Simulated assay, not measured.
Amino acid sequence: MLWFIIVTIVIGFVAGLIARAILPGNDSMGLLATTALGIVGSLLGGFLGYLITGSDRADGAFQTSGLIGSVIGAVLVLLLVRMLRRARA
């Protein structure tokens, strides 16, 4: 169980870094926020992959996805965060 948490954190961090590299901008995020971005993006990517393919029904709709799905999900979450920040300003 501990290895799953560590792998989730590492993949989340890498996905968050890649998403921030794909969408450069003035996002003042630290390491924890970048990791959280990647983890939430991974869950979103897994959910979208489940909706598109309908596979992995035994694991449920919310699941961690591969690195590509994680990055796509993190990019979508980063776009959403930027839209919400602009709407508040």
Rank of each mutant, 00 (worst) to 15 (best):
I22Q: 03
G46L: 04
G49W: 08
V40E: 06
D56T: 02
L51P: 01
R20T: 11
L23I: 15
V7A: 15
T35V: 03
A58R: 03
L37N: 01
I6K: 13
T64M: 13
L51E: 12
A87M: 13
L76F: 10
G69S: 08
R85Y: 05
R57P: 04
G69A: 07
L80R: 00
A58S: 11
G12V: 05
I18F: 09
F13R: 01
G46R: 03
A21C: 01
L17H: 02
D56S: 13
I9Y: 12
L80H: 07
G16T: 04
Q63N: 09
G73I: 00
G41C: 00
D59L: 15
T35F: 02
T8K: 14
L17A: 02
A58E: 15
L79S: 07
M29F: 15
S70D: 07
L2F: 14
L23W: 08
T53C: 12
S42F: 02
I52F: 12
T35L: 11
V7E: 15
L43Q: 10
R86C: 01
I22C: 12
L84V: 15
V75H: 06
S70I: 00
A87F: 12
T8C: 09
I72V: 14
N26Q: 14
I68Q: 04
L32C: 06
G38H: 05
S70M: 04
G16F: 05
S70F: 04
L76A: 14
S28Q: 14
R85G: 07
A87N: 00
L32E: 08
I11C: 07
R86Q: 11
L32A: 13
S55M: 08
L44F: 15
A36S: 12
A87C: 03
M83L: 14
L78D: 02
T53V: 08
G38Q: 05
S65L: 05
W3G: 02
L78C: 01
R88C: 04
V40S: 12
L78W: 04
A74E: 07
I9P: 01
D27C: 01
I68M: 09
V7F: 13
M29I: 08
A74Y: 05
I9S: 12
I39L: 06
T8Y: 13
G45C: 08
S42C: 14
A21R: 10
G46W: 02
G54W: 12
D27R: 10
L43G: 13
G16R: 01
T35K: 02
L80K: 00
I68N: 01
R86E: 14
F13K: 03
G46E: 08
V77M: 13
